[in-house]
Computed example of a mutant assay.
Amino acid sequence: MTRRILTVLLGTVLVTALTLPAAHATAVQDPLAERAYVGVSVATVWTSPTSPRALDRSAVAAPADPAGWLGAMTAADRRELTTASRTQTQVLYGAPVQVLERRDDWTRVAVPGQPSAKDDRGYPGWIPSAQLTTGVAFAGLTAALPAGTVDGVATTWLYAEETRTERLREISAGTRLPVLSGDSGGVQVSLPDGGTAWIDAAHLRIGGPEPATGEDLVGTARLFLDRPYLWGGRSGFAPDCSGLTGLVHELHGITIGRDASDQATGGRAVAKDDLRPGDLLFWNSPATHVAIYAGDGQMIEAFDASTPVRVTPVRFDDSYAGARRHLPDPA
């Protein structure tokens, strides 16, 4: 988006939205009575309320500290998340979830933006209740104002309203927040708890994405190179294999299944000799691993707990199960 378009959005659309009576946003009733919003930078969705370990304390806290959590874990600690199937997926700051059940300090949710064969309402699992907010006013602003999406970086920072230099919270690529105002240096956004913060204008895309090419998908995937692997990860802090490919597509306005097995049943089948950048490659049946084809016999993948996101040659081994293309057909 050009700076001129940004100025138009911030100078006209936002003025109109912000001069509405205060009651306009808060009076909008959420059509889903059991909807909540993520109130931490990244909410990890756990298999059960008993899944977190003592060393996962910073991941279930409010506020959460995803970078601190990852930094405190060894490769063996991250691998144990996989072997014990402790984590399911992650949901980004400000994203909606559907509440299915409340139990003590935990809430079972479905994540509507992450399709899954496990539940037709969205990917299911458990989130600490303290990491969720009802966000009625936030929902109204989300409906009334332009959305700003963190893009072009794996993670970025929200800054305090008063100084615009004090760091408040690190957030992931793909985070979407209502835009209130802005200038060439920063954009003011609304937060799920009712507060506001500033973000670097260079790290925020206002409005929807442009139609994507396969090369666009590969360029976005490269943003996450060298990030650690995390089972259930679906953020710029640390993704798993399908979390990486799902987030990359989401950043370009394309919703695909959350797990490799779901992604392998969508889109269109692609033969080996017709592979193009942006195609997804799968292994095993049902698929248990996915990578994104980068061209010239290379792929980008989040492989395992010992291996950061990497570029590596495509493995056409006995477990290779084919490729799918999720980009829309050209007009």
Rank of each mutant, 00 (worst) to 15 (best):
8 V>P: 00
13 V>G: 09
19 T>K: 10
50 T>N: 11
51 S>Q: 12
54 A>D: 14
54 A>V: 10
55 L>N: 11
59 A>Y: 07
60 V>L: 03
62 A>K: 13
63 P>H: 09
65 D>A: 02
68 G>A: 05
68 G>D: 07
78 R>E: 06
78 R>T: 08
84 A>E: 15
92 L>T: 14
95 A>C: 07
103 R>Y: 10
106 W>A: 04
107 T>W: 00
109 V>F: 03
111 V>D: 01
115 P>K: 01
117 A>M: 08
118 K>H: 04
121 R>A: 06
122 G>C: 03
128 P>Y: 09
137 A>T: 14
137 A>R: 15
140 G>F: 09
153 V>D: 04
160 A>K: 12
166 E>Q: 14
168 L>W: 03
169 R>W: 07
173 A>H: 01
176 R>W: 04
180 L>A: 08
184 S>A: 15
187 V>L: 07
188 Q>H: 06
195 G>A: 13
200 D>E: 15
202 A>E: 14
207 G>Y: 09
207 G>V: 05
212 A>D: 04
212 A>F: 03
217 L>G: 00
218 V>P: 09
223 L>D: 09
226 D>W: 03
226 D>N: 13
228 P>G: 05
229 Y>N: 07
230 L>G: 06
243 G>K: 02
244 L>F: 11
250 E>N: 09
257 G>C: 06
258 R>P: 09
259 D>T: 13
269 A>C: 03
273 D>V: 05
281 L>M: 02
288 T>H: 15
289 H>E: 13
293 Y>E: 05
301 E>N: 14
312 T>S: 15
313 P>S: 12
323 A>Q: 09
325 R>P: 08
330 P>G: 14
